[in-house]
């Protein structure tokens, strides 16, 4: 029971986004401004988020998991720019170009972001590992439906029950 609560608390309904943005800069700006307004990140979060993504991209090529999956990215900053441990899901209605985390010379389109807020790198469970486990263990048809959803409510409740 307590495990379940600890896991689900990584998500908040009011920080699930469905974005119409057509560029990385725009989606980062609108989400970061809202996260700042809600007190989850510091003022310099957006600047650090952009700088880091330029230098150390976070795109994850999911075609190696399943050729049918869209690619995702896990933008994040250094711990000092965030105030808690949280995953911020962002559905991109328009796929946006990101570079590959494990091979930055590769570029591909991404349609879902798991923005990671992590103020505690030494913490018990690794947030990125939990995201990958969620992707690997969720049945393919369910995950495909999830990735296509443009309802923040549906995205939130799926993550609450499956993550």
């Amino acid at each position: 029971m307590s495990d379940k609560i600890a896991e689900t608390s990584l998500f908040d309904r009011d920080t699930v986004y469905v974005s119409d943005a057509t560029s990385r800069a725009d989606v980062f700006k609108s989400v970061a401004e809202d996260l700042y307004k809600k007190g989850h990140v510091t003022k310099d979060f957006l600047k650090n988020l952009n700088e880091r993504e330029d230098k150390y991209p976070t795109g994850i090529d999911l075609s190696v998991v399943s050729p049918e999956y869209p690619n995702v990215a896990i933008p994040h900053t250094e711990a000092e720019f965030v105030k808690e441990r949280k995953v911020v899901p962002i559905k991109l209605k328009n796929p946006i170009s990101f570079n590959n985390m494990i091979d930055p010379s590769q570029e591909f389109e991404v349609s879902f972001l798991f923005m990671i807020l992590n103020n505690d790198p030494e913490g018990q469970s690794n947030v990125l590992a939990q995201i990958m486990d969620f992707i690997n263990k969720t049945p393919q048809n369910q995950l495909l439906t999830f990735f296509k959803s443009t309802s923040a409510d549906a995205i939130y409740s799926f993550l609450q029950s499956k993550f």
């Binding site: 880091r52 230098k55 150390y56 976070t58 896990i74 994040h76 900053t77 250094e78 711990a79 985390m101 990671i116 992590n118 790198p121 030494e122 690794n126 947030v127 990125l128 590992a129």
Partner: peptide
């Protein structure tokens, strides 16, 4: 080592 030293590198370390 990773960009932020927060997520990827710690996952590699643990694994």
């Amino acid at each position: 080592a990773c960009g932020a030293g927060v997520n990827s590198s710690h996952q590699i370390k643990d694994a």
